[in-house]
Computed example of a mutant assay.
Amino acid sequence: MQELRTILPEGIKEETEQFSPGIWDNIEEIRIRVERPVEIIIRGRPHFLRYRATVEDGVQLLNKISHYSIYTLEEELKRGYITVNGGHRVGLAGKVITEQGNVKAIRYITSFNIRVARQKIGISEQWIPYLYKKRWLNTLFYGPPQTGKTTMLRDIARLISTGQSNIPPLKVGIVDERSEIAGCVKGVPQHQFGVRIDVLDACPKAEGMMMLIRSMSPDVLIADEIGRKEDTEALFEAINSGVSVFVTAHGESMEDLMKRPSIYTLVKANVFDRYVQLSRKNDRPGCVEKIFDTNGKEILLTERVTTS
């Protein structure tokens, strides 16, 4: 969290310095809105500081995260977020400038959402018997927002690239369209992975999967939040190339997933060997509710909760 404390504007930093280590350990988001009280999300619940953010706070925050050279972040501003040291992501909102229907820039930024990135080492280890059968099984993690899907993917990538006692380390290709899985800063992952990881940062998923297959010969591909028709086509190409895939999608249930045409196509084609339903219990993400096989049969009969 030290990386975040250094970029906070002075007025906000002064009030948050009173937080105990226990509070800092459970902060998920820091939302700074000009002329409004600063909002802190702690274990899924909103808390508001007495301090009201000013225009100067916004300028100060932008200067810090851009190292006083905002023009170097032109591409990141188009996407609406900036990844900072530690893999934390700062979302932005304000006046959007468009050109021929495309976002050119964001000006007069008045809202900042600092999303705290935490790597939960080992969160996926107890599920290896469900996800590995002489090979890594093609797996789709699904659940509502903030249920730990990306956190689970991150740890799976680490496990696969480092290997386990009876599982050899494999080459892992990560297509990190939102710079969230690896949290790259200038192309360098900010999270802990094994040595056999290759990352395409800020690259559209479909194009990125094809690029990695052609250029990096991965054994396993990892991508977050599939859903477009192009994603479906790329996944078919990966499977047919002999590459295993681990991906995520938003959805409350299997029935919910089947309502999405692109995912319905993948399910009907038996692309995935495993479907893992995640939830958030006791305000902690990363809880495995159910695991289904490729035919939709539930194979996890007793609920277990991953360690956090």
Results as ranks from 00 to 15, higher is better:
Val305Ile: 03
Ile70Gln: 10
Asn113Asp: 03
Leu300Arg: 00
Ile167Gln: 11
Pro168Phe: 03
Phe246Met: 11
Val175Pro: 03
Pro37Phe: 09
Glu28Gly: 08
Pro37Ile: 02
Gln100Cys: 11
Glu35Lys: 12
Leu159Asn: 05
Ile239Val: 08
Trp24Pro: 10
Ile222Thr: 14
Ile121Ser: 11
Pro285Trp: 01
Cys184Val: 11
Ile109Leu: 06
Asp57Ile: 10
Thr232Ser: 04
Ser241Asp: 04
Glu3Cys: 02
Arg154Pro: 00
Cys287Leu: 09
Ser20Pro: 03
Gln60Thr: 09
Glu125Ala: 14
Ser66Pro: 08
Lys259Asp: 07
Pro204Asn: 02
Ser262Gly: 07
Ala202Leu: 15
Asn270Val: 11
Thr232Arg: 13
Thr98Met: 09
Ile7Val: 15
Arg304Phe: 07
Asn102Tyr: 15
Asp224Arg: 10
Ile32Gly: 04
Val96Trp: 00
Pro168Gln: 08
Thr98Ile: 14
Ile42His: 00
Pro169Tyr: 06
Gly22Glu: 15
Glu180Ala: 08
Thr302Gly: 03
Gln190Leu: 09
Leu170Glu: 15
Glu298Leu: 02
Ala105His: 12
Thr147His: 09
Glu14Ala: 13
Ala117Ile: 05
Lys297Asp: 14
Lys149Met: 01
Ile109Gln: 02
Lys95Glu: 06
Gln119Pro: 05
Gly143Asn: 02
Val288Met: 08
Ile106Tyr: 01
